[in-house]
Design a protein around this nucleic acid. Structure first.
Lengths: 256, 256
DNA sequence: GCAAAAGTGTTAGTTCTACACCCATGG
DNA sequence: CCATGGGTGTAGAACTAACACTTTTGC
């Protein structure tokens, strides 16, 4: 009662052979939907579990390139900048429970054995803009979707731990880089931006002070004013891309 | 004309088999000799090259434990705290030049092929006190020695790059933790400590301000006064271990 | 005109920076 | 008593945190 054809099995074998064994990559991608901080998770065809997108590294491929490829294959997110937040590999880090049903799906022993080995994984993280709405996953996955970061407790393996570690890194970055704006849509208001900061930091920040600090960086350009707000309409800004890129190279402390 | 007995060869084969393939660990350990920042490097028996201490991970061993074991095996440094500074694995990251002479030393093809594969390495770093003077290396190494960090240009592979990356991480740590004192001997003076900071940061710092900031942390206890100095004798301090450990958990900004 | 949310300003407290000044020692 | 390096104090600038005041909209 195999769900997978002989060709598929052969394809999987070939893929696995092209990769470095026992080493994987996982990508934690943050996005702010205006309300919550979210990450994409994927569901493999073989099991009813949810994972952070991740995969293996080809022999002829650098790890940074592998991270980009894997992310794109599984989510169609085409990302510019992925940074490492750590590498994880305790002795017991392996799929065991999660993988039980595989043989009933028609996977031969050798493949099951391969993927249930102990794995070390390299964690990458990044942030994407709000417009990144449509995720589309690749073969070998049933589904991909965004979930709020505080709803990632039940992911497989140590993946929820990966999310928290990535979030810590993101917070640390906020202190020295105005990464912020990469998250936001083309144009946005300062109160919107503030919500993003509060989502990442997990605490409220003072309105007046926030505004002053952001404007001091001079990376925002006024482009207009919002309408139909029910209260005073906020000023709409866009990013001064040039100044923004400059500000990324030199580190400033903007301690929030 | 083999330099290595059949037993040694067998031993090596067994060791390699017990390890995760194509994945290694390197440890960059900093030490301040009162003048310069230094790191230990080792010379393998097989080749006239110098490496950052490094090795492979056993199948039944977590990566953090592996890092500690490898460091101890190759330098006899018994370290408490090793932190990751990054994982490196470009597609071309492999010994090729460096390994040419191996077959003439009696290594069989399979071993040469194994170690000249493309490797991904996890970088760990730490700092040790000045009293850590005696290094002793393990089997498979000719020698181990301390060298100044700015004399690591000619290490094998990308190891000099690993040193610079580790140093960047160390600098970043200085900003939020008073790591400093782990470096120093049992007792020391503030001007001595300042030299350490300047060595790590690579630039001079203001004397008066440095002193004030260090003392504000309250992690130093006065234990006496130096003698025979040719000028005003500095005050000698030791570390308040309890307060020091406390200060490591909470982050403070002491921005230098 | 009132509530609501955005924009702006102010003030007190703290920290940073760059010094200046004094002090203890050996020669 | 002087050169040297260590210890201490301080004024101005910069930054921080908290909060108050003003403005603009929809109802």
């Amino acid at each position: 009662m195999s769900q997978f054809s002989e060709e598929t099995i052969t394809l999987i074998r070939q893929e696995l052979k092209k990769c470095i064994p026992q080493l994987s990559i996982n990508c934690v991608i943050f996005r702010f939907n205006g309300e919550h901080l979210q990450v994409p998770i994927v569901q493999p065809v073989q099991a009813d579990i949810w994972n952070i997108p991740g995969g293996y590294i080809y022999q002829n491929e650098g790890i940074n390139e592998a991270a980009k490829r894997i992310l794109f294959e599984q989510t169609e997110i085409n990302n510019l900048l992925l940074s490492q937040f750590g590498t994880f590999g305790s002795a017991q880090r392996e799929f065991s429970e999660e993988i039980k049903g595989y043989s009933s799906l028609g996977f031969p022993e050798d493949i099951i054995k391969h993927v249930s080995q102990r794995f070390v994984t390299i964690g990458y993280y990044s942030i994407v803009g709000q417009k990144q709405k449509d995720l589309k996953t690749g073969p070998f996955f049933k589904e991909v979707k965004w979930v709020n970061v505080n709803e990632t407790k039940s992911l497989a393996l140590d993946h929820s731990h990966l999310v928290s570690e990535a979030l810590l890194m993101l917070r640390a970055e906020l202190q020295s880089k105005p990464l912020l704006a990469s998250f936001m849509p083309e144009s946005f208001t300062i109160p919107e931006l503030q919500k993003l900061y509060e989502a990442i930091l997990g605490r409220p920040v003072d309105r007046g002070n926030f505004r002053q600090r952001i404007l001091k960086t001079k990376i925002l350009i006024k482009v207009g004013t919002a309408t139909k707000t029910g209260s005073r309409p906020p000023i709409v800004y866009k990013l001064d891309t040039k100044k923004y890129l400059d500000s990324l190279t030199q580190d400033m402390k903007l301690g929030f």
